[in-house]
Amino acid sequence: MKIQIKKSTILIGLLLIVGFILPRFAGEYYIHISVLVLFYAYMAVSWNILGGYAGQHSLGHALFMGIGAYTSTYLFTVIGLTPWIGMWLGGAFAGVIGGFVGYLCFRYGVKGPYFALVTIALAEAAVYIVTNIPSIGGAQGLEVAWTGNAPQLMQFDGKSGYYYMILVMTIIAVWLSSWLIKRRFGYQLLSIRENEDAAEALGVNTLRLKIQATVISAVMTALGGTFFAQYFTYINPRAVFGEGPSVQILLFAIIGGIGTVWGPVVGALVLIPIAELSRGWLGGTFAGAQILLYGTVLVLTMLFMPNGILGLYHKFLGKFQNRQSDGGKSEAL
């Protein structure tokens, strides 16, 4: 047997090395941008398990991000519970809500654009509910009190601590996502996306699988929500439950390559730096310039590369290599 090191393995190795040593060389500003890249990559990977693999396009994933952010922050603020624990409680809470939402939608055949609408409505409902509960901050939101450099409370002096935390989270998420897609669970999710009736006829328990995908995706997204709260040290209903985060989460997956392992990462890696840098160049207001940019990129993506950046890359690769089969899934990378 010939020992073969795949190109993708080398690439991933290089990425990891660069990832781990980056804070030694980069200034705070670039570390900040890297944190954003990793955070949105993480969120997009989480969304992708439900939206990309199972093909159930949630447009209200901020619901789960908000649950994670609010649960850990509230528990920290009120009883001083460390976010390291609060994070998992938030994840569990989001998992239960995700399971409930998934059950109700999928049990009653809500799918496609209707599922998207229901998720938007639920996230929007969450904005209003949280806004109207003064004890969890109401419209003002919650602040994460700074306690100095306290890793045990998920608070770090400087940005490197946060950077390493989200780096590890992203690595685990990508690993989980690539592990899932290589086994029965992942293939069955794909089959649901591709043709639900055919899947069901071949013994796939489509209802159970869609609910499971929702729960996994919700838990992962909520864990990211806690990170968001700790990093920005301030949350309010619209910032974590609103349409802004909902759209951003799925944007990177769609632009990078929906339903692929690396698409969501590539999407964030390409788009976040452009967005951040252009913010400086354009000098415009934060919201205006970014939304315009994201909107333009999204429309161009849909028009010219429906399979995202990775799809485009594979298309060119295919032209050169005459589509030699790699014996594996074309989705794999």
Partner: peptide, 15 residues
């Protein structure tokens, strides 16, 4: 009712 974006092998694997 094939699974259009999966390979033929993967189509049959689902069964």
């Amino acid at each position: 009712q094939p699974f259009p974006d999966m390979t033929v092998l993967e189509n049959v694997m689902i069964g």
